[in-house]
Structure formats: C-alpha cells, structure tokens
Design a protein around this nucleic acid. Sequence first.
RNA 1: GGGCGUGUAGCUCAAUGGUAGAGCAGUGGCCUUUUAAGCCAUUGGUUCAGGGUUCGAGCCCCUGCACGCUCACCA
Length: 509
Amino acid sequence: MELSDLEKIRVEKLLKLRQQGIEPYPTRAHPTHTAAQAIQEFEAMKQNAQNGGDLLPVRATLAGRIRSIRTMGKITFAHIEDGSGRIQLFLRVNELGEAQLEFFNEYFDLGDFIEAEGVLFRTRTGEITLHVFAFRMLAKAISPLPAAKDEVVDGQVVRHAALTDPETRYRQRYADLAVNPEVRDVFRKRAAIVRAIREFLDARGFLEVETPILQPIYGGAAARPFITHHNQLKQDLYLRISFELYLKRLLVGGLERVYEIGRDFRNEGVSFKHNPEFTQLEYYWAYADYEKVMSLTEEMLAYICDTVLGTRVIQFDGHTIDLNPPWRRLSLRQGLIEAVGIDITEYPTTESLAAAMRARNLPVKPDAPRGKLIDGLLGDYLEPNLIQPTFLYDYPRDISPLAKNKPGDPSTVERFEGFIGGMELCNAFTELNDPLEQEKRFLEMGRAYEEEDEERHPMDEDYLRAMSYGMPPNGGFGMGIDRLVMLLTDRRTIREVILFPHLREREED
RNA sequence: GGGCGUGUAGCUCAAUGGUAGAGCAGUGGCCUUUUAAGCCAUUGGUUCAGGGUUCGAGCCCCUGCACGCUCACCA
C-alpha cells in the first residue's frame, strides 16, 4: 500500500498510540445510544420538565465517525456520525483536563471512529450536544475521506467540494457512501422496495423460491449469456438470463403461485439502463392471465409507493408521474398508429411492413423479421414518450415465444409491457402451456435466429417434458428491480442504484 | 464497436506554448458555547500513461487507458 504524506502522518499517530499502550483498534465498543436516540431522549426529558417533571441529566455513550473538528483553544467541538445521523461533541478542558484535550487534538482526525461518554445539553446556538467526560479511539482512519463539507442554509443542504467524480464514486463506493448521505438513502430505499415487494406477494399466497443460477441450458429471454465451466463435471454452464423456465416447472409441480427475486446475467452492452448483472423479480400465477397480472401490477406498484414513499406521485427526470391505478392501457397496435401512423395489422408480412416504414422514411434494419421491426418502432418512437404509467398490450407472436396466442388472432399473443418515465419496467404474458405449440415455437425461433445463433432460444427438452405433464394456465410477470429503484429514487442511471456497478478493469498503475 | 467530451495536490477546480496555482483538507501557532468558525504561517504535483513537434508542452500532434454523454447493440 503506497502511502501519501497525509497517510504517513496518521500512521505515525497510530504507532505512537500503540507505544503509549493505547490500542487504536479496540475489540469492543459500548454505545448506549445512537445519535438520534440521544437527541430524542434529551428532548423527551425537556418535555417532561416542562410538564412539571424532574429535569434529570441525560447521560449517553455514543460511537461514530468524526466528521468535523473545530478547535478553539481550551474547547473543541466535533461532529460525529453514526447510522442514525450526526451529533455534536463538546470537549472542554474543565472536565477533561489539559492532557486529555491535548490528546484529542493530537491524535484524533476526521474519519476516525470514536466512542464518547457524557451528558447532553443545548449550546447557545441551540444545538443538542454531548458534553464529553471521557472518550476513546474505536478505529483510526489512515486515509482521509474525500472531503465533503456541507452546511444548512435556510433548510437547504449546500454541499461544498463533495466527492463527485463518478468513477471514484463507483469504484470506491465505500468512500461514496461514507461522505454522501443521500447515496446511503438510495440503498436504504432500495432495500425497502424489495421488502415491500415480498410483503405484497407473500400476503397474496405467493411462495418465494430459489432456482438455479448456473444452468446447462439458458432460456426465457432473448439475450446472450455468460458462459462458465464446472471443472469436475467437465461441463459448460450458463449464468441464467431469466428465471422463467424454472419457475414455470414449479407450476407443473403444484406450486401454484411462485416468485423469485434474484440476479440475472446478460452478456450485452452496458448503458444507463443496462448492467451485466441486474436484479429481477419474476412471478407466475396459476389460473391467472395477463389482464389479472396487469391489475396486480398496478396494485403492487401502489403498495410499494405507499409503503416506501408515502405517496403515489413521484418525480423522475423532471417529470411528475402519477402511479395511482388504473394505468393507461394501450394496445401496441394503437400505440404505433399514434406514434408512427402505421397500423401493423394492415402489414402482416415482413416485406409489407418494411415497405410501409420506408414510405414514411423510417429506418429499416436489414434482415430483421417482422416482430423485430415492430419492436424497433416501439423502442424508438413509442417507449421514450411513455412517461406516465402505461401498459402496452398484445404483441407480435414471433418475438414472444413463451406467450399464449390471443384467441382468434394467430399473429398476436397476450403479452404486455409496463412503461414509466420512458423506460420499460416490466414484461408479462399469459403463459403458453401447450407443450406441442411450445415445441413448435422453439423450432421457429431456432430457425429465425439460425444465422445469428447467439440470441436464439435453445430447445429446452426438459422444460417441454415438464409442460407435457400438464401446466395450469397462468400469468407470468417480470420486472427489473434496478429500474424500479431508479424511478422511485429519481436516479437517471442504473449505476446509481447498484452498489458496485460493473466497470472496466483498471490497468494496474 | 463509432462520434463527442473529460482526466492537473487527498477533495472541488484554475493556469495565452514561457517559473504549475486557489479554496478546503493536512502541518505549526492564537482563541472556553463554536459550526463551511476565523486569523497568521506553512507542507503538498510522474499535470492519466507512452511517444512526437518545439529553444521551451498541463496546453499542439500521435498511440494507449479510464470515465462521462451519445449512437449502435440490447426484452
């Protein structure tokens, strides 16, 4: 470890502490309160006194990281921070003696963890503060944290010289979290969102399960997989790209409502809304269809908003978005008529659709099948404008090999995607449960992608066997948790809601 | 993968091709209810890396690396 001058000074302090028989990394800490609890208890005591009760001193031992030090001769003020927030320390020569105060000034730096025992009081400026009688080093920090000073002006937090460089923030997330409290809030909120999803589904009889991440055959989505290898079995394995095919096997087995929250891996480009590994929710619901799933989606999002945010009206990327049910429901056909003026039912073949697109000066990707063209139109001209919650429903069959046909319309399947803030958030369908039809679809997909090879759905014979035992009709649902967290925390990139987002490996320097 | 941009002190940022700077942090002082404390003094640099042009490069040119934006890709 290469040390800077600043770090060398701190290491010297550390060594001097040890020479004096003081352990700079003691094994145990004994806080009696968090910062927030201490403040709360002090205010409660004041309240009690106002109501005629006795005014007793409130003692507390606090533990936290030193965030500021202001030395003024015979007194020193400092702020410490723990998980509950910040609180001020007041160290005075009267109580501590000159030697102890000098010891603090000499050996304690910003970023160190300290334990301080004392009595709470209110300073002249009105701040509830711990008047310290004794203190102890809990952990010496050698490296200075990236400076982040903030002040509160008229209730607004004004940040000075905060750590902002995105690369440092993501590579050293620990430092980012340590100095940027709002980053911690994002991940607390993320945890609350996931918890709310579990509560919601558990309450409705869904069973949380875990299925393989290492899979001999990948499937359930159109994406390129990561490949890995099991040495002893001498077997190539894929990191899953979705949970779908395993979860639906469970419906065959009589687990009628199942869900999984976990990581998917897709070996594709990264962008503001794509990370190579991302967290997905999928559920499958026997005897339901895509309309029931749509309604449950509205309910679930409303529940998450109520639980986590306390409001169903959110701000995202400068938009005010209303998540109250019901959401707008728009058929993909109607949506495209409005967006590009093309009624896809009038162009049932790839050739005719491509011609219609060219006639409107829309770019046509060569060799794309009809479904891909439609999907492209959707992504380019429709999705960016779907700011308010919108269900787009009824998708082309040829890009939806696991979804069930719409009765009476062989080219369309019962599938919907939910969009919010111009982003696809979820994807769901009435699941195909006809094993012979499913086999046909797999074969069709195999043909369509024969040349590209990478995105095609490999035939999963075991999945077909499962289905051939009889799979109840069901509705399935998938949602990107990361994107949901983006929406609910108003973060514009997926990297802001993933603790350790994937970054290119840095050359050793 | 393409285009555009960025990379300078621990952090945030300056510097016309001509001696690399400021604020904060650090270090040494003064100061007993302060709060971005203040005041005085002071340390700190492989200017992302490697080449090139030039009397002279943080700045111009080339190559590479990383990050950001964007396009492509992507359920």
